[in-house]
Simulated assay, not measured.
Amino acid sequence: MKVTLIAGARPNFMKIAPIIHAIKKAQDEGKSIHYRLVHTGQHYDEKMSETFFRQLNIPHPDVNLACGGGSQAEQTAAILLAFEKEVLAHPTDLVMVVGDVTSTMACSIVAKKLNIKVAHVEAGIRSWDRSMPEEINRMLTDSITDYFFTTSTLAGENLLKEGHKKEQIHFVGNVMIDTLRANESRFQQPEVWNELDLKPKHYLVMTMHRPANVDEEAKLKEFIESIDQNTNGMPVIFPIHPRTKGILEKAGIQMKNIYLVEPLGYLEFNYLVKHAKGVLTDSGGITEETTVMNVPCITLRDNTERPETIDIGTNELIGTNPKKIKPALEKLLSGNWKQGQIPEKWDGKAAERIVDVLLEL
């Protein structure tokens, strides 16, 4: 069996890596399964260096289609054209996509138009917010997918409601947690640890990147000021994107407890998260990692495609009203945060289950 694996952005490689390791394990056992790793080049990431691949034991892609830059429409068109040429030159039995980036959707469309089966890892998750580009990508991809690999039973229920057949849906767990578990013992203390004399459980970590939160200067200012004023003097470490940093500087926001640092590598960032008192974020993926590491998490969004992090895990969704930040921080800092549990099958073996299913097909 020949499988073409698609990655379009840095987080995709973290989801693909355990699948490749599971494929190699199956090969060592004499199983007939082969892969080709295609990087669409959708996101150029200067941190996607040799160090990134070496740190996380991630294989280099067989090809980079270099489809970065431009609007979403331009990127989609570029990926459609480039991936069609790629898959015609390198025939495959199955195209496997992960997550919800533009590459996920575009490569699925190319595969189906060439009568190639499509498998979607992280299928069926829904925020029900169609203003999010990721939600459109998820829905369109799942509408033409043949084999669904889900992170939760709820995701499977979503797919059934959309008319997909039970035998197409495989509840395997969360490949991002496979990567977390494989690297947890190797987390690295970042330089900021000693620079700020940080102590375990005596600081907070913050991430913010969604346009709805960072693009509007007045709203971002209100967010930052509310967080800065309600940490009881506890430092907040904020690895910040240069664009967001520019908006903050333009607004002239003064901060006494929030420390802006350069974006961190996977091992360094998760070291900070693991030892933090809590996390404030608008990311979906981080809520999964905080849940598994049992770290309190405040999510600054009105909806989430990962409700199990709230129902079972350590996450609380407080919305995008900055006035909700103070009571949430008071609850977190007082030690009265809920105790979370780890969702079913988030055990580091999701990729092995995926490959087992592929071998049965």
Rank of each mutant, 00 (worst) to 15 (best):
N137I: 09
S143E: 01
D146C: 06
I144W: 03
M105V: 06
N137H: 08
F148V: 00
F149C: 11
T104E: 09
T150Q: 09
M139F: 05
L140F: 04
S131A: 14
S143L: 04
S127M: 09
V118S: 05
T145H: 08
I116W: 00
F149K: 07
C107S: 15
E135W: 05
E122V: 00
K113G: 00
D142Q: 09
S152K: 02
W128V: 07
L140A: 14
L140Q: 11
M105H: 10
D129A: 11
R126N: 03
S108A: 15
S103T: 15
G124N: 00
E135V: 10
K112Q: 15
T102F: 01
I109V: 15
F149M: 12
I136Y: 02
D142P: 05
E122H: 04
T102Q: 05
A123K: 08
E134C: 06
S143M: 01
F148L: 07
R130M: 15
D142K: 02
S152N: 11
S152F: 08
T150Y: 02
S131I: 00
C107Y: 13
A123T: 05
I136P: 06
D146I: 08
A106D: 14
H120S: 03
S143H: 11
T102V: 13
E135L: 04
S131F: 04
A119H: 00
I109C: 10
D142S: 03
G124V: 04
S108G: 15
I116A: 10
D146N: 14
I125Y: 00
Y147H: 11
S127Q: 08
D129T: 09
S127D: 02
H120K: 06
A111G: 13
S131Q: 12
I125S: 10
A106Y: 13
N137P: 11
D146V: 13
S131W: 01
T104H: 10
K117T: 14
R126M: 01
I144T: 03
K113V: 08
M139D: 06
L114I: 10
N115S: 14
T145R: 00
M139A: 13
C107R: 12
D129W: 10
A111N: 12
K113P: 00
M105S: 04
W128C: 09
N137A: 06
I144D: 02
W128L: 12
M139Q: 14
N115T: 08
V121K: 02
D129H: 09
L140S: 11
S108D: 12
K117G: 05
T150I: 08
T145N: 02
M105W: 11
S108C: 15
S127N: 10
E134I: 10
V110K: 14
I136H: 12
A119R: 07
N137K: 08
A119L: 03
T141M: 06
S108R: 11
Y147V: 14
I144M: 07
M132H: 02
K113F: 13
L114Q: 15
R126V: 06
G124A: 02
K113N: 13
L114A: 09
V121Q: 00
P133F: 01
P133K: 01
